[in-house]
Design a protein around this nucleic acid. Structure first.
Lengths: 239, 239
DNA sequence: CCATGAGCATTTGGATGAAATATGCCGTTT
DNA sequence: AAACGGCATATTTCATCCAAATGCTCATGG
């Protein structure tokens, strides 16, 4: 596959198809991360430097860099002296992650309610309307993207880059289940109603209210994901 | 040779020999991290693979691994195409970090209040007593360690490893200021009173109460640090 | 038939040389 | 004198080589 640095530079206008990192290591990192997060590589599958390297036509060094970062991030784990593999999600991991996301995202929403400027809510309102249209049309594929954008824009108003980064990292860990949530008709509908409510409370700068709505919003999401998790029989409670 | 021999010398002195860890990369990571969070290497100082490697008598590969991890963690930053350097703390970084720590640690305390078993509070009580003794003796050096242990034990009771890890990572980012807080007589005293109160509320399993006390506890810490930051601009403590 | 150990294969870890890259300096040109 | 372009240099980044650790297989001996 085309993974050459010079090529990337020269045809930079079509860079979207290629992971846009400035170094090979970062490109591998992004690509591997997406593969893990989206479930393209199954949990438990081994991730071997030489294998990845060969399949991409590059040496082991950048792959190693990527693997180590992903290990630190918790997406890969290592079996002592066997190698690396995709970390599997236990039920407790989901509960834990949602719990942390809840406090972090409700805090971000609170900050956003306080810090946002009046004209910054318009793009959010647009997303809500767009979401509604797609919902009416039954265009489920679009929902996922719009939903993501709404939340990113909302938390972006918190003006706290570290917080935003932490939230995104946490979201990656359970990305596999995002589709699950919005594929439920009722949930997709409720979701946008929540968004509308958040927006209204933001307008009123009701920090407590927004925080509460976001918390409840995530609680619903957690319950859906857990039901789905249990249904699939992926139940492996550790500890 | 126009490179800064001063950095080489100081880094070399600090990093010389701490040989505990799985792999060389891990050892370098730990050592470098300590050097950065304790302020042994000043913010803004450049961190160059080859320099660190030479001063430790090893190759660049493990050093590179360590540097990249620390960059991801936010302790090092990169100047576009110049190299890596120790990230400096802006005022907004402190405010941001304390804000996030507050929601995370108060959440951890809430979980701890719910999940702890009755006999698990005894070690915490011991720490409070020990702290008091050291305070009465004027043994400030000991306070720092005991304080850390108390909080680690408390959050440990939350039974949420991810949460604990995130809290610890955040603490590292402002570790340089911990000494500042507890060096103030009044603050050191107030601190233990807060701990006592937390413990009592934990016994009563008053989750809301514990959460509130932890939040206020951290708020005080933040204010102290910010005052200190504004006064000096930056704190340099010999270790 | 079972146990044990030696050798083999697999995989990560570390070292080193070579390449890419950006930057600052210096000389030339207008 | 100012601006522009090319060269020297510092530093990261990638590839390749070798070493060390560990599990597995298979043969051999009791």
């Amino acid at each position: 596959m085309p993974f050459d640095r010079k090529d990337v530079a020269s045809i930079s206008y079509m860079l979207d198809s290629i992971p846009r990192g400035r170094s090979l290591g970062e490109q591998v990192y992004e690509r591997l991360k997406q593969a893990v997060v989206k479930g393209d590589i199954e949990p438990g599958a081994r991730v071997v430097e030489s294998v990845i390297g060969e399949s991409l036509g590059i040496s082991r060094t950048p792959v190693r860099e990527a693997i180590h970062k992903l290990e630190k991030e918790g997406l890969l784990a290592r079996s002592p002296s066997k190698g690396f593999f995709v970390a599997d999600l236990k039920r407790s991991d989901i509960e834990e992650t949602f719990g942390i996301r809840t406090v972090l995202e409700s805090y971000a929403a609170r900050l956003a309610a306080v810090h946002h400027r009046a004209n910054e809510l318009a793009p959010l309102a647009e997303k809500v309307e767009l979401y509604q249209e797609c919902l009416d049309r039954g265009d489920r594929e679009a929902l996922l993207g719009i939903n993501t954008q709404f939340h990113e824009m909302l938390y972006g108003l918190s003006r706290s880059p570290k917080l935003i980064k932490m939230i995104n990292d946490l979201k990656d860990q359970i990305y596999r289940f995002r589709r699950v949530i919005l594929n439920r008709d009722d949930m997709a509908k409720i979701s946008n109603e929540d968004h509308r409510l958040m927006l209204e409370l933001m307008r009123q700068r009701d920090a407590d209210g927004v925080e509460r709505v976001v918390r409840e919003h995530l609680l619903k999401g957690k319950d859906f994901v857990l039901v789905e998790f249990d249904r699939k029989g992926m139940v492996k409670e550790g500890a």
